[in-house]
Design a protein around this nucleic acid. Structure first.
Lengths: 349, 349
DNA sequence: CGTTGGCACTCGGTAGAATTGACTGCTAAC
DNA sequence: GTTAGCAGTCAATTCTACCGAGTGCCAACG
């Protein structure tokens, strides 16, 4: 009995060779044509050498097991999310065309400017490579240490706190006071803040002066405003490239609108990408990522790792019938080049 | 003869009262229904009390003069860009619903955070108010003076130049050297840069040391990298809100794609907005702004003026058949609140 | 017993014809 | 100059018939 069970369904999510081949043929063709695929075109495809009738009977099995679906009785089959999942799990990794490889290498050889500019442009590159919408997320600076803080006076009661982190990011915060601060106090507060904060990260709590004079108040206010940043965002930045591809790639205004409106919410996008990474996935298909408005989408992510630490991620967002092999290859190559660009080679730029 | 000419066409772009009423009725109804409007519905509309037949003969005149067009022989009339132009030029300015007014006031009473955050949120607000895509452009800092510059060492050959401007903006620039810079040199360079640049604007040219030692080189490099910013952009920032509205408001994937791909190019958007402002317009309809991909769009802009100086602009982008009165009112109200928010009341926040 | 060819059936998509109805332009009368 | 009436136009809609891709089932075959 155990054997029989093992035979009919060898393992919950493993298929016998012929079913696998057929499933892969269906998925591949549907990705190509966007049409439901019928038994005969599968039977005539390269790796399959059985008759359409046999393919049909396998297809009803695949449908029963949830890999395929039929839009209507007399139509071909369409992959379900589960079908796509099987497909990408058994995908042998591909490689970009040499023209595309050249484009990436050329880009990273010539790109210059501040980190943000580079990431922005990278996002555009990735989108142009794949013709899907791309997302580049840079890691927050919660683990970066503070290199410098400076308090600059804009108006008597309005100071600007400028903080430089070891990862090269710079953030500013407004510090408002209820009293007029004079120039000397601001400089002194700036000096004390430096002494207090340099070398710490945002996670360190520091001892602030409890006196009630102007300088101490400025210092207290500054530290609190700086440390208040934590909860909302970690300082991640998101760069979205090729949002117009959404209109090319999805059919139906409503889908386009839904996807665009998700992309507008940057916090959501960051969360989505990190969610997928945390689950150890590189692709989330349809309902897998749990965002209903994105149920028509697949999301590909590739972490960017510098010196063993996570420095961010790049992602691609396309229809579930996206060209996984090419897209995975593009995301992978770009993430590696990004890592190299901001890793050792940085001083070559 | 002169009199006769004056009678048939009183003035190149002025219409007699009845034609004007009819044109306005056509535009208003078409904005409402998105359908070609026929003579009878115009004749039955409030301000018109002539028969459909009369309306028809006026309509052929309006069509001959370029205010209306006919999609096909047996259809109603649709306004041309020129027709819309007449409509907005003769629009008595409207006012927002009290619910919307409340929403704006409430927003500005409660919003807090850095300038960028406020502008970003303002952009979302404006888009939600109107259900069109909104654009908020903040002026560049070419006229702002430098309050502070600081050189921070990231690596031996990689310094970060952080500049604070009197308008509260902070920019960073990488400064790379071909030699290892030590801490003392960097501090000294920082000190000299402060002495050199504080109080100047980016338009000032300053005298840099010509010596070839480390400090002088750092100073020269820093100044050059800072002044190099000018040509590309002026430091303007663009915040685009509600890009998903594009999919709601335009029909046809191709139009949606074109508009989105324009919105992706921020530089283009800034130029567009400034172009319109420079021409003294507040609305650019269809072909008026000269961007072919936006020929289906109308763009509304309202300058934000603080203490008599231009501090940026807010804009709305919708279809040519947009609700001009409401949109103009919204843009106007938001721009005024923005000016007030960052003007005198700033220290109340 | 798995595989295959054959066959009847289903059902979405398309093409054409007929119909509808919302317009117009024109004209003749007011 | 304005209006009612009328004939004409043309997109949109509906209906019908039909086609064909594709299925499920079954009987025959190795």
């Amino acid at each position: 009995m155990a054997r029989r069970a093992a035979k009919t369904s060898p393992s919950p999510s493993d298929l016998d060779a012929r079913k696998a081949t057929i499933l892969e043929a269906v998925v591949a063709e549907h990705i190509d044509t966007a049409q439901p695929v019928g038994s005969s075109s599968v039977a005539h495809s390269a790796d399959v050498d059985v008759s359409p009738a046999t393919v049909r009977s396998e297809m009803v099995a695949l449908e029963r097991e949830g890999y395929l679906a039929q839009p209507h009785t007399s139509a071909g089959r369409v992959p379900t999310d589960k079908g796509y999942r099987y497909f990408v799990d058994h995908l042998k990794s591909g490689v970009l065309s040499s023209a595309q490889q050249y484009q990436v290498r050329d880009f990273f050889a010539n790109v210059r400017g501040e980190v943000e500019d580079v990431l922005e442009k990278t996002s555009t590159l990735l989108s142009e490579l794949t013709s899907y919408t791309s997302v580049v997320v840079s890691a927050g600076h919660s683990h970066a240490s503070i290199l410098s803080v400076q308090l600059v006076s804009l108006e008597a009661r309005h100071q600007l706190l400028v903080t430089v982190f070891s990862d090269g990011s710079v953030v500013k915060h407004s510090v408002n006071t209820t009293f007029d601060a004079n120039f000397v106090d601001v400089s002194e507060a700036s000096r004390q803040l430096n002494a207090l904060l340099i070398g710490t990260t945002l996670e360190h709590r520091v001892q602030v002066p409890s006196r009630s004079d102007g300088v101490a108040t400025l210092v207290r206010e500054s530290v609190s405003v700086l440390h208040a940043e934590q909860p909302t965002t970690d300082g991640e930045q998101v760069f979205i490239g090729g949002s117009s591809k959404v209109a090319e790639v999805f059919v139906g205004v409503e889908t386009v609108r839904k996807v665009l409106s998700i992309l507008e919410q940057e916090l959501l996008v960051v969360t989505l990408v990190q969610d997928i990474l945390n689950r150890g996935l590189s692709v989330a298909i349809g309902s897998e990522h749990g965002y209903e408005p994105l149920s028509a989408c697949a999301v590909i992510v590739a972490p960017v790792t510098i010196d063993g630490a996570s420095a961010g991620a790049v992602g691609l967002l396309g229809p579930t019938r996206m060209k996984y092999r090419e897209a995975l290859a593009a995301a992978g190559m770009v993430s590696q080049h990004l890592a190299r660009h901001f890793g050792g080679e940085d001083d070559l730029a």
